[in-house]
Design a protein around this nucleic acid. Structure first.
Lengths: 116, 116
DNA sequence: TCTTGACTTAGAGTTAACTTTAACTGTTAG
DNA sequence: CTAACAGTTAAAGTTAACTCTAAGTCAAGA
């Protein structure tokens, strides 16, 4: 049961403390606790959650949508279907995006080969 | 030798006329001509260039960097090396990004499979 | 005890990339 | 001839996602 200060969590997840506070303010991190002096303490669970937020964000999901997903997650089993539907839709988007990236890669490689 | 109005070019490249004017203002489209009434006329070359801009942008290059690349392109053979170096560096970035996307895809798929 | 340093907050500022507005002009169909 | 339309410009507005500032609090070391 390890706890992290915001500086440690920041280091761990490679996001600035500003960003961590911002995500919390936006409702993406509803479970971060505070110590008696009001300072944030991050659980491993929080870091896991941030990791998944980075995954969703890194694949083009907006923070707004990520919050929607997180809100469904907070509602547990009751919203499992909706939540998974979101992820499956997002999965398709990622697959499509990888395809597009591969197409663009070929275009760049063609341009490199042109030698003019 | 076909020429396109901004509306036609917009349709063709799937960018709004606003965006086309914006790209021009930012120096990304230095060769767009105007008719006697001051209206833009796009050549096939312009559309090709916009296509490549979309490729670079779609793979995460900023408009600022795209302009740098375009400026080198305008200087022709003299800057060929620099220009190609930019593209080769960008190629690496795209490869890395595809890797990351695949990793994230696996994370999302794992989450979907979790069924909880 | 004093000061240093890491934190806190609310709110302001920044950046990229558009997107819209307002006021205007030239072309075309009736 | 005139109304509608498609374009023009400079400049202001928007949005997402941070990023920073100012003013304050608290705990720990010299």
């Amino acid at each position: 049961m390890s706890l992290y200060t915001i500086a440690q969590a920041s280091e761990e997840v490679e996001l600035t403390p500003y960003t961590l506070r911002y995500y919390e303010k936006e409702g993406l991190l509803p479970n971060v606790i505070k110590d008696s002096a009001g300072r944030r303490k991050y659980h491993d669970d929080d870091l896991q959650r941030i990791g998944f937020i980075k995954c969703l964000k890194g694949t083009g999901m907006s923070l707004k949508q990520i919050k929607e997903y997180g809100d469904l997650y907070e509602q547990g089993k009751a919203k499992f279907k909706e939540r998974n539907a979101m992820l499956e839709e997002h999965r398709e988007k990622i697959l499509q995006e990888i395809k597009t990236q591969k197409k663009y890669l070929k275009m760049v490689e063609a341009k490199i080969q042109m030698k003019i």
